[in-house]
């Protein structure tokens, strides 16, 4: 078991290194392919009014003329230990993890990322709780009443859930629940959990449900398929032969056996979502990572784009790591191998 964990941890670290290299290479190369020179990059920091002389100087000081590998090394060092930027006018201290400064606002990227993560994390956690509960419950009931009215209705709704885009369901629910009925908060509202948990939930309930609807559908179908299989397993018959109540048979024996694929998919979905629920955040005007990324891309603000990309990659890799570890918890047969 220990070697299993260590192996996965090493794998995750290697994965992150590769992701950071690839990301860095892309963001290093893309502007140059688009015709940017070290001087024009430097001008982003020096201001457009700076003379060609100053630009050249700053480009040198910021190391834009160094080879790719050296620049990557400096970037990683900034992430791990922080770094100093000599902009000519002054020396900026950029504490670890240093993702650099925004071209537009000249502010460090990392505090922004932390701030935006709170919103995205709030959105993801609430939505995930709803979709896992609703999706799994609907899937179990559908499987147990296969072919019934409930089964067909649930699977029909599930199909709608996976096929309808979030901006569509989101807009409709905003118009209906928020603007017409006044039941939920209008778009653009966000109250942080630490400020007021009740307000936090109230401000997010509609985005949660909208996002959950999209995911619950897949979980319902996955759970249904898994339950149809496990409820025919011999061990479920054994559970019944013991005289266990049907509820215990279904949940403890049937559902438990169907859990592995659900856990897997959940880890991947959740990790991806943490990188930014772009459509949901835009639809509900929530200032999360997804919206941050869109704004950064629109403004060509490379350090921000790179920061979001790397952070999203970290979320996915960490989520995968957690799934791998959960595997061993869910399926004891994994622990031995």
């Amino acid at each position: 078991m220990t070697t299993y964990i260590i192996r996965r941890l090493i794998g995750a670290v290697i994965m992150l290194l590769i992701v950071s290299m690839v990301t860095f290479a892309i963001f290093f190369l893309v502007p140059r392919l688009a015709g940017a020179t070290p001087e024009s990059l430097a001008s982003r920091y020096a201001g457009r009014t700076a003379t060609a002389e100053t630009q050249k100087l700053i480009a040198d000081r910021l190391g834009f003329n160094d080879p790719l590998v050296v620049q990557y090394g400096r970037f990683v060092k900034g992430l791990v230990a922080g770094s100093e930027f000599d902009t000519g006018a002054s020396i900026e201290q950029c504490p670890a993890p240093c993702f650099g400064y925004s071209y537009i606002t000249q502010q460090p990227v990392w505090p922004d990322l932390v701030d935006r993560s709170r919103v995205t994390l709030s959105l993801a956690v609430g939505a995930a709780a709803i979709w896992v509960f609703a999706g799994v419950a609907a899937g179990v009931v559908s499987a147990l009443r296969r072919g019934s009215f409930f089964d067909r209705a649930a699977m029909g709704i599930a199909l709608a859930g996976v096929s309808l885009p979030v901006f569509f369901t989101g807009m409709i629910s905003l118009v209906f629940f928020s603007y017409s009925l006044g039941l939920t908060a209008p778009g653009g509202t966000y109250v942080d959990f630490t400020v007021n948990p009740a307000q936090w939930a109230y401000s997010l309930i509609l985005p949660w449900i909208t996002l959950a609807f999209l995911f619950a559908a897949g979980y319902a179908r996955l759970t249904r398929a898994g339950m149809l299989e496990t409820m025919n397993e011999d061990y479920v018959r054994t559970a019944r032969a013991k005289g266990l109540p049907e509820r215990t048979v279904v949940v403890k024996h049937g559902l438990r056996g169907a859990l592995t694929p659900i856990v897997t998919i959940f880890g991947l979905d959740f990790g991806l979502l943490l990188g930014g629920a772009v459509l949901t955040e835009s639809t509900f005007s929530l200032n999360g990572l997804g919206k941050y990324a869109i704004d950064a891309i629109t403004n060509n603000d490379l350090p921000k784009v790179m920061g979001v990309t790397l952070l999203a990659a970290v979320f996915v890799v960490v989520a995968n790591l957690i799934v791998d570890l959960l595997y061993a918890v869910v399926d004891p047969r994994v622990r031995l191998s």
Binding site: R237, A239, R240, A241, L244, H253, G257, D331, P332
Partner: peptide, 25 residues
């Protein structure tokens, strides 16, 4: 009948591997 199962009448199946839940001791 459920309450009698396991208590007054019990059963052993053909394939003990598939008849036991793989995830519980």
């Amino acid at each position: 009948v459920r309450k009698l199962r396991g208590k007054k009448m019990a059963m052993i199946f053909q394939d003990p591997l598939s008849a036991m839940h793989p995830y519980y001791t």
